[in-house]
């Protein structure tokens, strides 16, 4: 022990710099994330809301807010809305991304202009979601360009009221989610596919395997960690769905609150200053996303170890 200290005196004296370099991150994290999180959890145990101009509470009520959230039924409805819209966007997204990534990485197919296609399909990911939703709102309005185009083409006689039906509004949100994320997922899956040993594909081809056999027998099994990563991070993102439905429906979650998501619900509680309920809802969201984050963490750790 002593001998090593003598041999590497410098090494020891630098240790403190490791801590010093971490100070900015952790002090900011503590003030702007950790303390707010703890105080959010703390509020979940209090009755505290605005009734007209009067502030009720804060009064300690134990778990009453949680009981209320679960028994009122809205939480369940909004969780269902959020998950339905996520699935409607995610299923086509993962299927299309798998297909495109398989084509882009296929050495026999040797597609040209892949750089161009990747650039184009990734682009919607960087677009301001609120502006994108506003754009869809105007394009799919009852007398908007999409309806005019459909009528010009003779596909419909009367304009389609996309946003007044549940399926229409949900489909628009799912479609925007799909457009914003399928390029990103394609690139992630490509990175995974390119990590697979080419010899495996060549051996399969020599053995006369069909493209589908190669895909289902080699690519898919080896892609499992990245598929898990893509799915869980997408679900975490899906649970945070806010900008698109909020702007598309002007915060109403219409029609009849069938596109109201969990974060829109939280946002409503924050703006109506119902802090007790907002706190309880945050705790529930934290528990769900926290559990999912542990899954992401495990995938990342496994990758780093290999």
């Amino acid at each position: 022990m002593k001998a090593s200290k003598v041999r590497k005196p410098k090494h020891v004296s630098y240790t403190k710099w490791g801590y010093i370099f971490l100070i900015p991150f952790f002090s900011v994290y503590a003030v702007f994330s950790f303390i707010p999180m703890i105080s959010t959890f703390y509020y979940s145990f209090f009755e505290n809301f605005m009734s007209g101009l009067k502030m009720i509470g804060p009064k300690y009520v134990g778990l009453d807010n949680f009981v209320k959230l679960f028994t009122e039924g809205d939480l369940l409805k909004y969780t269902e809305n959020t998950l339905i819209m996520w699935v409607m966007g995610f299923v086509p997204q993962i299927l299309v991304s798998l297909l495109l990534a398989a084509w882009f990485t296929n050495t026999r197919l040797k597609l040209k202009f892949t750089g161009f296609f990747k650039t184009v399909i990734y682009m919607p990911n960087l677009i301001m979601a609120s502006a994108f939703a506003m754009l869809f709102f105007t394009l799919f309005a009852n007398n908007g360009p999409v309806n005019m185009m459909l009528m010009n083409l003779g596909l419909t006689k009367e304009s389609i009221h996309f946003m007044s039906s549940t399926i229409g509004a949900r489909s628009l949100i799912a479609m925007m989610n799909f457009l914003m994320w399928f390029g990103n997922t394609t690139i992630l899956l490509m990175a995974g596919m390119m990590g697979i040993d080419v010899a495996l594909f060549e051996a399969a081809e020599v053995d006369g395997a069909t493209p589908w056999q190669i895909f289902s027998g080699i690519t898919m099994p080896l892609l499992r960690p990245i598929m898990a990563y893509v799915m869980v991070t997408s679900l975490i993102g899906g649970l945070q769905m806010f900008d698109l439905p909020q702007i598309l429906t002007n915060g109403q979650g219409g029609p009849d609150r069938t596109t109201m998501t969990l974060i829109m619900y939280l946002n409503n509680h924050l703006f109506s200053k119902n802090y007790g309920m907002a706190g309880a809802l945050s705790v529930i969201l934290f528990v769900i996303t926290g559990a999912l984050s542990i899954l992401v963490f495990k995938v990342l750790m496994r990758q780093r170890e290999s």
Binding site: L22, F25, Y29, V31, F32, S33, I35, P36, M37, I38, S39, T40, Y43, T233, I236, L239, Q240, F242, I263, L266, L270, Y275, A278, G279, S282, V283, L285, F286, T289, G290, L292, S293, I294, V296, F297, L300, M301
Partner: peptide, 23 residues
């Protein structure tokens, strides 16, 4: 510390929004 940062990476900021507004 590294594991901790990795773990908080995917926790959404929205869950601490209430405390953030209060702060």
């Amino acid at each position: 510390i590294f594991d901790f940062i990795l773990l908080i990476m995917t926790i959404p900021t929205q869950v601490s929004a209430l405390g953030f507004v209060k702060l």
